[in-house]
Simulated scan of single mutants.
Amino acid sequence: MEFKFRPIKLEDVKQIDSWNYENFVEKVEMKPYFESFQHTGQLKGPGGCEGYAAFVDEEVVGLFEFNINRNLMEIGLALRPDWIGKGLGATYVKQGIAFGIHHYDEDMNEVRLEVDEQNKAAIRVYEKIGFKKIEQKQCDIEMGMVL
């Protein structure tokens, strides 16, 4: 499976905002994109991150967000609800990180993310590809991976 990434567009933001997850997973936080677009005409995500829609066969199936701070890449990500649980998580995360490293052309040495402590499946995926727990932050776990 190969995911393609492109800068997020307003129609992608609207589509991702409509995704509904069951159980503990909260909605993907898309409000910052709408607010930044309204104020500046640009689409910026939480914390000013840059968002990219992930596609398979011209269909939006994911979101990947990047904040670059020198050698550190902070990521946020989501996979469309009907794509979860199909064994694609590790491939998706690896391809998104590879895209970010290539796109930003920086000498990255670490990737970090935060995940809800109840999202055991996502934590297993992150650990499987090399992430380690760094710190517990209320209900979230900060994880990092040395590149």
Rank of each mutant, 00 (worst) to 15 (best):
A121N: 13
A78M: 00
E106H: 14
L79V: 05
V115D: 03
L77H: 01
Y52L: 00
Q42C: 02
M30H: 03
G85F: 10
I134C: 14
E106R: 14
Y126F: 13
R124E: 14
M108K: 02
N109W: 12
G62R: 11
M143I: 03
F3D: 11
S36Q: 09
P32I: 13
I8Q: 02
F66N: 04
N23D: 15
K94W: 09
S36D: 08
G62N: 03
N20S: 04
Y21K: 10
V115L: 04
E127A: 04
H103V: 13
E65S: 10
M145I: 07
V125N: 00
N119P: 09
G96Y: 10
F99N: 00
E127S: 10
V13G: 02
I97W: 01
W83P: 02
Q118K: 15
G41F: 03
E127M: 11
N67P: 09
V115N: 06
I68G: 03
N69D: 10
E117M: 04
A54Y: 07
Q118R: 15
G89T: 08
E127W: 13
N23Q: 15
F37P: 00
L72M: 15
E58R: 15
F34N: 12
F3A: 10
G144I: 11
G144V: 05
P46L: 12
Q138G: 12
